[in-house]
Design a protein around this nucleic acid. Sequence first.
DNA 1: TAGGCGATGACCT
DNA 2: GGTCATCGCCTAC
Length: 196
Amino acid sequence: MRSEPTTVDVVEAARSLLGRHLVGHGVTVRITEVEAYGGHLDPASHAYTRTARSEIMYGPPWRLYVYRSYGIHHCANVVTGPTEQGAAVLVRSGEVVDGHARARARRGGVPETRLARGPGNLAQALGISLADKGTDLLDADAVVRLGAPVVEPPAISTGPRVGVSKAADVPWRLWITGDPTVSAYRRSPRAPAPPR
DNA sequence: TAGGCGATGACCT
DNA sequence: GGTCATCGCCTAC
């Protein structure tokens, strides 16, 4: 299928991130939920229009793209490449596996399953801010980095993406089946009504 | 330079 | 289940 090479790549990358560890400022999470964004071909992606903010998504893969949403929350994305396509994967949720005390201190004593549930909360638990934008996630010395690739892929479910107002019906949200840390699906209030 | 909007989350009813 | 807080970024003028 030559029409959508980017989409296949980024979804495959998203799949490979599930179950993988992500380390941020002394806290380690196991990624349980992600969303794929197809770059300049995807109207829901920040990289759909190429600007100074999204420029980093057009760069080399495995870099961290951080943006602020609603003026409050930070969201962490993994640029998956290939270069010049602007594809990235939003890390939505994770299970804290190390650094609980630090994560809890940042999150303020919420229940265990909510420590890194939702993209804003995950970034907060990991201490990720705009200052971390551009970090090379494969650099073993970086304060934010990815763990080793997953050897045995977990059971994965897919569905429509959360909170996006465009292309909301593309099933590019992926999560580990049955994981309690996966956030609830909520459609964007701005998204058009779903097709029947 | 100003106005509008967003890949959210917490709290209230 | 619904509403609101809050600010950086993009777009239009």
